[in-house]
Design a binder for these strands. Structure first.
Lengths: 234, 234
DNA sequence: TCAAAAGTGTTTGACTTACACCCATGA
DNA sequence: TCATGGGTGTAAGTCAAACACTTTTGA
């Protein structure tokens, strides 16, 4: 249902020709990493045009809202492409957005959700953006807490591990994973447990902090009252 | 002398209002990291507008050529900003370019070179771009061979170490530095030595390869015959 | 012979990897 | 009692950091 994507303008009806914002919207669903696609007529990334006094970040958030009817959990600019399109150059600013499960739960999002591993788009730029979003997400799993934006408020360590494994596409050792995550101090254990089968119940965890450790690859925005916190690179 | 910066257009005479490319051009001079500024009337980053069928990368390279009258050694897209400018939004795509000393040697570059540590620009966006370029360069020193784009064809290990120290702004241990660099295998020792004072001459090294280990943070360009090589994130 | 930069090893602690069994529960 | 996933420790290897003296040269 991408018909809700107009105003200031959908990809195919540009008001400011040549400049658009595309968003890779990821969620974790049944343990699988999925990407949101708007299909008209070809499936493609949700996209739109920034309004005359709208920042790119704001436009990206608006596009997500139009698809989701709720807000994303995390958003980050990826890269700006300038593909040739019939002799003219377009400029496509791409964003990565992550969604917590509950964000989709109470709102049937527009578009379709497809497993990332199974997506192969005709649009070369959209496909490159998705591929790059995955590279970035995988890289950041290693040195940030970015994965938590894909998980619900409370979760078990096994769920967290499965998220890592599904994104990275390889198995990780249970003991080493738990030791590393717990040692990093980004989790705090709740006193609750989840019993969901004929086996020992699992302890539930949440973030120790809602602060991001994910932002040092993106610059603070000039003229912004509360700039993105900056970590020192290792 | 930024009067050579027109065609398709300099920052202050936009042909396509609202979209421009800015380049942070770094060189190492007398052991100091310097940035190129074009001063008219305020000093600012060299910038320009992409032509109608010019990619952003190509525009960035052209801007460097117009400043330098020669080509840069390395170039990478940084980030896209969208500052408010009198109620209208501009879009500024920023690039980092690195220069080998000999690139400046035989060509008096336009603009002025200023030590990065001493630069404080009135233009908020330009300043943010420079700051971010530094963050990126410093981060990449740690896990890529990017520093070599700032050094001449042949150099001593002490020169290389001084380059690292000047960029990182802190001292590094000589023995650990040499061990790490040599173990990484990116250098090969030449049979030449440099004697330049009343002390033991230093062995000269060069790259083992002109290949980049620097690119995995930027995506391969779609529709590009020879895409940027992609490393797997750690 | 002196000053100045080049060059060189070892030890320690931290972190990463590989690896296998017992625990708590519901059916 | 059995099947299922939850939970735990140790040993080996790799990597980073700290640290100081000898070598070669020209003046």
């Amino acid at each position: 249902m991408t018909t809700s994507l107009h105003d200031p303008g959908f990809r195919h009806h540009p008001a400011t020709p040549g400049l658009s914002v595309s968003v890779v919207l990821f969620r974790l669903h049944d343990g699988q990493l999925e990407v949101n696609l708007s299909g008209d007529p070809e499936p493609g990334l949700p996209a739109g045009l920034p309004g005359p006094d709208e920042s790119l970040d704001t436009a990206a958030r608006r596009i997500v809202r139009q698809v989701l009817h709720t807000n994303e959990e995390y958003m980050e600019q990826l890269y700006t492409f300038s593909p040739a399109n019939a002799g003219e150059r377009e400029v496509v600013i791409s964003y990565l957005a992550l969604l917590q499960p509950q964000d989709t739960a109470h709102s049937a999002a527009d578009g379709i959700w497809r497993r990332v591993s199974q997506v192969k788009l005709a649009n070369e730029v959209d496909q490159a953006v998705i591929d790059y979003a995955l590279v970035r997400l995988r890289a950041k799993l290693g040195y940030t807490n970015i994965a938590f934006h894909l998980l619900p408020e409370m979760f078990t360590l096994s769920e967290l591990q499965r998220a890592y494994e599904n994104i990275l596409q390889h198995a990780v050792d249970k003991r080493n994973f738990r030791r590393r995550i717990l040692a990093s101090g980004i989790l705090s254990q709740t006193d609750q447990k989840r019993r969901d089968g004929s086996h020992r119940p699992a302890a539930l965890y949440r973030f120790a902090s809602r602060e991001d450790h994910t932002t040092y690859l993106t610059p603070p925005q000039p003229g912004n009252a509360n700039p993105t916190p900056q970590e020192s690179p290792r």
